[in-house]
Design a protein around this nucleic acid. Structure first.
Lengths: 191, 191, 191, 191
DNA sequence: AAATAATCGAGACGGTACGTCTCGTCTTTAC
DNA sequence: GTAAAGACGAGACGTACCGTCTCGATTATTT
């Protein structure tokens, strides 16, 4: 790796670190690219060169934090693995800095299609796919009714979580997650 | 009605109308209170006197449009009523100006607790309560298992809809609504 | 005096009193008619009904304070009377609230011809005339050269005082006044 | 001159030119920094970056016009030089744009100590000093009484001029200036 | 005593400007 | 030759006053 790209990498890191720092202090919605550049000791151009919008920087900062925290466990027990995984996601969404950052990012995505696309492609969809893959495994093993739409199942698992997170702002407790899971498997189970 | 409150009421209406108008043209996120006031032919203070933030004005404009569109039908067939009602909500969320306006409002709520509270109190919660009341009626009639948590049922109905609306941005078709409903009643039915 | 005009008079007094009060606290330039009305517990209209501008109110408040402080003494010794009188004017200009108020009024007069005219007619000119009348008496008594222009003499007495007050902002000491007077009489005395 | 300061210098010039332009059209008191920026095709920040207040901009615009118009002539005849110089100042104060601009500036100085200081330091005091220097020369040559205070003489020359300009608003004719000068030299001459 | 008229406080209203902030682009300077 | 530093035009922020206006509630005068 050349020293230039090393240097470039340093700035990238520094800017994302400052974004998270300032975000916790100021709130992710209130903060400006101008302020991030100032605090990071970096020219505004250096930020604009790397990210096209505040949302894009927000997304990268989020992923830099937790890109690998969302790998599913694999114990052989599909239902237990799902439960464990959703507990982890719920915990993540609850705690700073991920929670508020993700909240801000979803807000940003509502009026910035680029952010919406990137967020979906890099965060939401991979999660969905892994969940659906697990459900698929379970169905193959006969733990699930073969005619139940797995995308729908995934939506029924995720939807209530996001609903609480974005709309009612109630806490994402493990109990709640378990309730949803149990309800789903009750309806989804083989007859 | 006195002429003062008449006058006051006129401005209030005019400002909300302009907000909806400008929103459709410009996009709700892009628009400024300044622009709304200018277009409505009204001093900025006259807006700030009525609403504390852009979000508050957004919410009132939304409610002025559809405050009464969300009353449940009552045909005696609870499941059919629920279905009809959710279809109406899905249609509303799909079409402008309600759809984009509501999307912008949810985004605003993510960083403005006042908006979040007001949105929940004036829009989301009433919907929830009416849905839960219907489910309650159905349970009383023996159409639902007596030990199923009705708040959870409501969340399983609403969550996937909001998930599609806010996260995956797929269309809120009647088919999708029906799928969710069927899945829920399958798991929820009396054994 | 009728009770209506009594009432009216009360407000007039109250407003001018508040103007002086607020002026001392806030500075005469910073203060708004709005603030005066608010503090005086009076509708804005009640102020605008009486005065056409802030300058007009300023002038009336000034005159209400010191309308009668500027009557010349008359001891028979013209030069001593002049000296005593100018000392009094200098003292007045030095001390609040008259000094700052008068300063603000002169400033206001620079861009408001109505204020300029009123200030000149009601304050400056009467002073001038009394000074010239005294000088006239002195000339009649042979204390002054008969061919010296008395308006010019008055300007030479007043000018340096205003120059210090408005331009250099040095203190208007009795010593300075005496110097000017002595210089004037030296040049003006009969040969 | 580097191209940065070139660019900066261009804006500075353009803003001051616009200030003078707008001032003549609108009146210096009526005009806003906002209007100057708009007319000059410049962001408001670009004005605020250079001047802290309207008064400061006013002063710089004034000085940009006539910084070098006030150098004394030097013919060897001190009294004639003084007369010529004061005639020039009187003419300057009479004619737009200097006259109204200077008037507005003096008004501004009455409630803005920074403007007062700057105006005195950059305009009034240099004039004073040059006048006093001339008077000093005259005294050295025996044209003036050695015991006459020269600062006082300067005040007696300037005061009546400012008095007419600011208070009575009578025209600053050469005749008037000559009268003042003659009166001063009559009193000041060697005995 | 009732009717009429004037005055008042309160403050809404359309405007305009304030001085600050951020946007995204563009220049210059320094390492 | 790449950044930092930050100037720049643009324009929104939320606040303050302007001077005009409308409103009911007192007062005062007239009938």
């Amino acid at each position: 790796m050349t020293s230039t790209s090393r240097r470039g990498h340093d700035r990238t890191e520094a800017i994302m670190r400052t974004m998270l720092e300032l975000g916790r202090e100021t709130g992710y919605a209130r903060l400006s690219i101008e302020a991030v550049a100032r605090r990071a000791g970096v020219g505004k151009h250096t930020v604009y060169r790397r990210w096209t919008s505040k949302g894009a920087l927000l997304l990268d900062s989020l992923l830099s934090l937790h890109r690998h925290d969302l790998d599913y466990p694999d114990t052989g027990d599909v239902r237990a693995d799902l439960r464990a995984q959703i507990h982890r996601v719920a915990d993540l969404m609850t705690a700073p800095p991920f929670g508020p950052l993700f909240r801000a990012l979803v807000a940003e995505a509502q009026h910035d299609p680029d952010v919406a696309t990137a967020l979906h492609a890099q965060f939401t969809r991979p999660q969905e796919e892994r969940t659906v893959a697990r459900l698929n495994t379970a169905r193959d093993r006969g733990e699930l009714s073969p005619d139940f739409d797995l995308d729908l199942a995934m939506a029924i698992l995720s939807g209530p979580l996001y609903f609480r997170f974005l709309i009612t702002r109630e806490p994402l407790t493990h109990e709640y997650v378990d309730q949803v899971l149990d309800a789903l498997f009750a309806g989804m189970g083989p007859r």
